[in-house]
Nucleic acid binder design. Structure first.
Length: 423
RNA sequence: GGAGGGGUGGCCGAGCGGACUAUGGCGCCUGUCUUGAAAACAGGUAACACCUCAGACGUGUUCAUGGGUUCGAAUCCCAUCCCCUCCGCCA
């Protein structure tokens, strides 16, 4: 959520910043609601002040005054009406404010779509093959570690079953990533619920705007999380963090659930885009002046994993129009998939500045005495599993159809290669 | 799911229609004392909104949440949520 005070004081600046990410939002209705709200609050406060004063007089005096009591009854009705007015206006105002995305940082490249993204660096080289590398679904024909048919049978399209070494590889990746983040990168491990309340999703800004991508249980009004970012934002919702408690860094593994309605028809083969996938997420709460620096650290932590795996990847800085709704600056990590012949997004790292903090009410104090200030929040995938599996399978495939497991994972998988099953 | 009990400031805990402007204690901050610290003593200790150049002054709101009764609600009534105890069920 944007600061209403900023919108009120510098509407042109806000309008321009929103336009730079392709958002043509009219601010006039918001400004009008803001004015109505303040006016109604002001009137109500004055009436309440009078009522408080008179009620005290009534309490102090011996005999009741029917005239005063009658007058106060009317004042009470007027107050009630103003309260309803404030409530209604605030509802409309917050509805409007909740649909505005974050403002990009001033030095983010301008552009309306992915074509304006900038490749900041590339690591490694594509491997050389003396055969035609296969896509992971073709490799799987011999490996038998991904069962598309049975996934569809029990759950429908875009659900898969992992089997044997495939299931073990996935579990190994999760454990390994969490171990590296907690033991070497300074994150505290969190295991959160996969079901959350509506207000939790409003805090992270998945609601109200992106409800159609979420699974929802109407009976209990609980939602399946699309990413652990949702949970980690909520960890300190409504809190005022003590001086000295920042930075706070969490890493969490969760399954992630997404309807992918908008992507219907795209990426239908393989496990690139599925309704349920696993992901380890990094998250940080920091002082505002430190957030851009912290974003570089999160990107570096994600890159560290890719380098240890030996995967060829590139770092993209997203342009204004391609960034996610809550982000003020984002970097995507894309890994090369030699079978599919494309770059796969395996991580997205963002500085959300005070945008989620304002929605979720996450503040901190610099000193014991000082006023609470909003923290800055950052998130980054570290990493998204199905696409890392794709990259590992396709990158380390051998001419005979087996896949060699990267050294760093072997203590976790307990095997050095996945071999075609005997037919 | 059933039956009871309970949710008050950073924490503990009193208050159960009008001086609550929320007692007291702990914690925290400042000061005195001290070479420094501790102890002792004194003072101060919330958030949010409106107003404002301002974190000043002022006003309002907040005693789980939302309604209601009343001139006036932490206090009375209703609903909801959460926590605890016992029973049932269960991995």
């Amino acid at each position: 959520m944007l600061d209403i005070e900023l919108i009120r004081r510098r509407p042109d600046q806000v309008r321009a910043a929103l336009a730079s990410r392709g958002e043509e939002s009219a601010l006039e209705p918001i400004l009008a609601l803001d004015a109505r709200r303040r006016d109604a609050i002001h009137q109500g406060d004055e009436l309440r002040a009078r009522r408080n004063q008179v009620s005290q007089e009534i309490g102090r005096s011996r005999e009741r005054s029917p005239e005063l009591i009658a007058e106060m009854r009317q004042v009470g009705d007027r107050i009630k009406a103003l309260e309803d007015e404030v409530k209604g206006v605030e509802e409309e105002l917050s509805k409007a404010l909740l649909t505005l995305p974050n403002l990009p940082r001033a030095d983010v490249p301008i552009g309306l779509d992915a074509s304006a993204n900038i490749v900041r660096r590339t690591w490694g080289q594509p491997r050389a093959y003396d055969f035609q590398p296969k896509a992971h679904w073709d490799l799987n024909d011999a490996l038998g570690i991904i069962d598309f048919q049975r996934g569809a049978r029990m759950s429908g399209a875009r659900f898969v079953v992992l089997r044997g070494q495939g299931a073990r590889l996935q579990r190994a990746l999760i454990t390994w990533m969490l171990d590296v983040h907690t033991q070497e990168h300074g994150y505290i491990e969190i295991y959160p619920p996969a079901l959350v309340k509506s207000e939790t999703l409003v805090g992270s800004s998945n609601l109200p705007k992106f409800a159609d991508n979420l699974y929802h249980d109407a009976e209990d009004d609980l939602w399946l999380v699309p990413t652990a970012e949702v949970n980690l934002t909520a960890m300190h919702a409504g809190e005022i963090l003590e001086p000295g408690s920042l930075p706070i860094k969490y890493a969490a593994y969760t399954p992630c659930f997404r309807k992918e309605k908008t992507a219907a028809g795209r990426d239908t083969r393989g496990i690139k885009r599925v309704h349920q996938f696993d992901k380890v997420e990094m998250y940080a709460f920091v002082e505002p002046e430190r957030s851009d620096e912290e974003l570089q650290k999160i990107v570096a932590d994600a890159e560290d994993l890719l380098q240890r795996l030996g995967l060829h990847y590139r770092v993209l800085q997203l342009c204004t129009g391609d960034m996610g709704f809550p982000s003020a600056r984002s970097y995507d990590l894309e890994v090369w998939s030699p079978g599919c012949q494309e770059w796969l997004e395996v991580s997205s790292c963002s500085n959300c500045t005070d945008f989620q903090a304002r929605r979720a009410g996450i503040r901190f104090r610099r000193e014991a005495r000082s006023r609470p200030e909003l923290v800055h929040t950052l998130n980054g995938s570290g990493l998204a599993l199905p696409r890392i599996m794709i990259a590992i399978l396709e990158t380390f495939q051998q001419s005979g159809g087996s896949v060699v497991i990267p050294d760093c994972l072997r203590p976790y998988t307990g095997f050095e290669a996945i071999k075609p099953v005997e037919q």
